[in-house]
């Protein structure tokens, strides 16, 4: 099975964080988060760090991809 992707690109704040919070609640495994705005990038990073959830960050075609590992 391919890893689920949460695509937050183009959404106004705080929808990116809301989607991530919902994914954290609704899913048990790992997933990727696609982010394209500076504010959302920092908000999601802060949310994950606060919840002490492990993740990798990389740049892909100008977007940031956070890979949440659980």
């Amino acid at each position: 099975m391919t890893k689920p992707i949460i695509d937050t690109r183009g959404l106004s704040c705080p929808q990116p964080v809301v989607l991530v919070l919902q994914a954290l609640k609704g899913m048990t495994g790992s997933f990727d988060i696609l982010v394209d705005s500076g504010a959302a990038r920092e908000n999601i990073r802060r949310t994950l760090e606060k919840k002490q959830i492990g993740f990798d960050a990389k740049e892909e075609n100008g977007d940031t991809v956070y890979s949440v590992k659980r």
Binding site: C13, P14, V17, V18, L21, G38, A39, E42, N43, R46, T47, K50
Partner: peptide, 18 residues
Amino acid sequence: RFCTMGSLRDLFISRDLH
């Protein structure tokens, strides 16, 4: 990213005090 509206909204949605 200073935002007065966001300051309260983040409290309500994710308890984020940033």
